[in-house]
Design a protein around this nucleic acid. Structure first.
Length: 506
DNA sequence: TAAAAGGAACGCA
DNA sequence: TGCGTTCCTTTTA
């Protein structure tokens, strides 16, 4: 078709920037986005003032992002931290406003008789209370987590030593501008002992602000209990998920997501916020993420960068959101979720992000969601010979691939890598979620069509942690399969249509 | 203009 | 060493 390719001068230098070039360009573009002010947000909403005041009481709390950063990314300067804190606070406020509007507006349109209005009003109040409760809890938990990290305290009150108690009291005294008690006040006052003290005993031990300290301790106790219950629930679900036959789990429905995230899909109040992540869920995920293997954490953080078009969204919000997004097939729902729950997206700066780009990001997040919920999903090959004929064919034609398939069948893919053909097969086998990206044209023949080359490349890039992946590169990889006899163009050449060769078509 | 095709060099596991 | 990525040029629809 053509002669030897003339490579341009400087190509070698480009090589040295392997994996950086395009990605960096994209990041530079993304960095054009700026933080936007959205003043006078919710203060006019009387109910919400409670939340605002509650937030203001936790003046020393760290932002969600800082919670993540404390494990590895501590190089942010003070200005950035202040900015993030500010963004986090505003985001929280916006979420409150949106949640409030989202609950009221649709129902006001559809309520026609007074009884229904009354009942729905009651429900709204319950929902609202639940939301506020969760928001407050969220912030409290964030505050607690950061304080524990800062003071080096165990995240279980009963495990505190007397010295832990002393440091905690000192911290609370600083926060509430109370005089710090002398060291002798903490003799034999470990965590367990402190939990048994009533308010009078607190006041006796700590004459200056004992009641405040007692109240604060009760808040912490409540938050710890809430955390413990949810962690236990989450761990139980993880055990259940691990025992599932993943090959039958080709769809991750919203109820599965709810289960995995520790959410409930039964109560009306929770259903009203089913598309968003509850505060306690966020904390649950924040805590559970600390138990994740490093590669998963690194993977998540890299993907946070990949999809960081969500400017203004904190890392914890990101990691929380991606779990609750439904499947790619529900992109519209995802966009609705993102637009209503991530106010940063709706700010003018984000108008630079095209609708298509939002869709890609939403889908990418959803895909990533599936990977983290069921991270082995796209790594464990489920290919197998359907019959002896296929086995013999490949055994003769391509012994190495035969071995790979055998290894896959034996779940012996110890490398943990995934091949492009395998990845595409996975997407093809999940039409409910990915048919907008790639779909079978003729399942028996093995012909498939790439419906959205951009999306497919984006997904593949995410899967392989290649931010600069595009269809040009992906298609080059596909063409490598021609020689290997895995994929070829169909006899009647059509754009974006390829064909799996036997036995890869089954 | 996007897709297709393929050469070449390279990184990674 | 295999696989995939990146960059490139040329051709095709």
């Amino acid at each position: 078709m053509k002669q030897k390719c003339q490579r341009g001068v400087g190509h070698k230098e480009n090589r040295n920037e392997y994996g950086k070039g395009d990605g960096e360009d994209e990041e530079e573009e993304d960095e054009e986005e700026e933080e936007n002010e959205d003043g006078a947000i919710i203060t006019s909403l009387n109910n919400f003032e409670i939340v605002v005041k509650s937030e203001q009481s936790f003046t020393t709390s760290q932002s969600d992002t800082e919670l993540w950063d404390e494990e590895g990314e501590e190089e942010k300067n003070g200005d950035d931290e202040e900015k993030i804190e500010d963004v986090s606070q505003k985001s929280l406020q916006r979420v409150c406003k949106i949640e409030q509007n989202r609950i009221y507006q649709p129902q006001q349109e559809f309520c026609e008789d007074n009884n229904n209005l009354y009942l729905q009003g009651q429900q709204q109040q319950n929902d609202q209370t639940e939301i506020y409760r969760e928001l407050i809890l969220r912030h409290l938990i964030a505050d607690i987590t950061s304080t524990c990290a800062k003071l080096g305290l165990p995240t279980e009150l009963a495990l505190w030593s007397a010295d832990d108690s002393r440091r905690w009291v000192a911290e609370m005294c600083t926060q509430f501008q109370i005089q710090i008690p002398p060291p002798e006040s903490f003799v034999n006052l470990d965590g367990q002992r402190m939990l048994t003290l009533g308010v009078e005993e607190f006041q006796h031990r700590f004459p200056d602000g004992g009641d405040t300290l007692h109240a604060q301790l009760q808040l912490w106790k409540t938050a710890f209990e809430s955390c413990g219950q949810q962690q236990q629930f989450f761990e139980n679900q993880q055990i259940n998920n691990q025992s599932r036959d993943w090959t039958n789990d080709n769809t991750l429905n919203s109820s599965s997501v709810a289960v995995l995230t520790g959410g409930s899909s039964t109560s009306p109040s929770s259903s009203s916020i089913s598309s968003s992540t509850s505060a306690s869920q966020q904390f649950n995920q924040c805590m559970s993420s600390r138990r994740q293997i490093p590669s998963i954490r690194a993977y998540q953080q890299q993907h946070y960068q990949v999809v960081h078009n969500y400017q203004g969204i904190t890392q914890q919000q990101y990691y929380s959101n991606h779990r609750t997004l439904a499947q790619v097939g529900d992109e519209e729902q995802h966009l609705n979720y993102i637009n209503t729950n991530n106010p940063a997206i709706t700010t003018p700066s984000n108008y630079f992000v095209s609708e298509n780009e939002k869709a890609v990001n939403a889908a990418a997040l959803a895909l990533f969601s599936n990977q983290t919920e069921n991270c082995a999903l796209l790594q464990k090959p489920n290919y197998h010979y359907n019959n002896q004929q296929q086995r013999q064919y490949l055994q003769q034609q391509n012994p190495r691939h035969h071995q790979r398939i055998i290894a896959a069948q034996n779940n012996n893919n110890s490398s943990g890598t995934i091949h492009l053909w395998h990845f595409i097969r996975e997407l093809l086998d999940r039409p409910k979620e990915f048919e907008g990206c790639v779909r079978w044209v003729n399942r028996e023949e093995g012909t498939f069509k790439i419906e959205s080359s951009h999306h497919l490349a984006r997904y593949w890039g995410i899967r392989k942690n290649r931010a600069a992946m595009n269809y040009d590169k992906l298609s080059r990889s596909l063409r490598q399969y021609y020689k290997k006899g895995i994929i070829q163009k169909p006899e009647k050449k059509q754009r974006l249509v390829y064909k799996f060769l036997p036995p890869y078509n089954h």
